[in-house]
């Protein structure tokens, strides 16, 4: 029967789509999280997909049925009621369905929104990394280790990372899809983003907010290592990499595209100075975030 065929086609299409987004394809990073933050977000995404499909599938099925059944053709035996235009019971049903679904999804959303403002795991001691988006590169400073990197960021796995984000250029957005969602980097503001990797590996990161000509090249890697390997890496950078001088910082801040770089030291306090200079002095809140770890 053509009717069931079209129904099957539509639901098959949707099912294929649902499969695709739930992680069967390769490289669908958001659906293949490597840390607790990304996992919480993926669970919310899964829930939202299920909830919307509860409405979308019946709507499309009903649509296909009605269009097929009530098409105008000679000798149609389908009922025709040109004046039928009100039914309170039916309307109560479809005012209620979306209200129920929005209530469920809304509750889950609010719960996760608050949950993600804290470190994902409180057992391990967090590591702080200061991130500055520049035109068109990413600068990572490690206030605990006094080293800095550009366009890559090595982190210990299984430890919460506190990224403190700002910009010394137009606003960008710091996004590592496999670890979790993004947050803007904005001049004169310090914003906190908690992420954590549960396994070692190299994770793709990219700026998510347009900043002009070199924006497409603002890619960076987040490299998660075991704690011991991370410590060895810090030592190696301290030993072998050049220092980042103040002059070096200023030339880095100019518009250019650079490869991955490492620095054995960086001008301490420049992050805070940059923040204040760009307008952070008007914001006690942003400066106080920096106070918490300095």
């Amino acid at each position: 029967m053509p009717r069931t065929k079209s129904l099957r086609r539509y639901s098959g299409l949707l099912f294929a789509g649902a499969l695709l987004v739930s992680g069967c394809g390769r490289g669908i990073w958001v659906m293949d999280p490597a840390g607790p933050v990304g996992r919480i977000e993926k669970q919310l995404i899964d829930l939202s997909i299920i909830l919307v499909l509860i409405v979308v599938i019946p709507v499309i099925a009903l649509f296909a049925y009605i269009v097929y059944r009530y098409r105008d053709r000679p000798g149609s035996k389908a009922p025709y009621s040109p004046h039928w235009s009100d039914n309170t019971a039916l309307e109560v049903i479809w005012w209620s369905i979306p209200i129920i679904i929005v209530s469920i999804l809304g509750t889950a959303t609010v719960k996760d929104t608050y949950a993600l403002t804290h470190p994902p795991e409180r057992s391990a001691r967090p590591l702080t990394v200061e991130v500055t988006s520049l035109d068109w590169k990413w600068l990572f400073e490690y206030p605990g280790q006094h080293i800095a990197t550009v366009n890559y960021c090595t982190i210990p796995a299984n430890r919460p990372i506190q990224f403190i984000l700002t910009s010394n250029a137009p606003m960008n957005s710091f996004w590592v899809p496999q670890l979790g969602g993004q947050e803007y980097t904005m001049p004169g503001m310090a914003m906190r983003l908690w992420l954590q990797a549960d396994r070692t590996g190299v994770f793709y990161g990219h700026g998510a907010n347009f900043t002009g000509r070199g924006f497409a090249h603002m890619q960076f890697d987040v490299v998660a290592k075991r704690q011991a390997d991370f410590d060895r890496w810090v030592q190696a950078v301290r030993r072998s990499a050049p220092p980042l001088t103040l002059m070096g910082y200023h030339s880095l801040a100019r518009q250019s595209i650079v490869p991955k770089l490492s620095y054995s030291s960086y001008p301490l306090g420049e992050f805070r100075k940059n923040l204040a200079k760009e307008g952070g002095m008007y914001s006690k809140h942003d400066m106080s975030i920096v106070h918490t770890y300095e």
Partner: peptide, 23 residues
């Protein structure tokens, strides 16, 4: 619009939007 509206509801879930924003 059923599909577009559904993805709209998905985008409205703020923590999930951290993964969709500007993508």
């Amino acid at each position: 619009f059923a599909i577009g509206g559904a993805t709209g509801v998905m985008l409205a879930a703020a923590p999930a939007d951290y993964q969709y924003h500007n993508s």
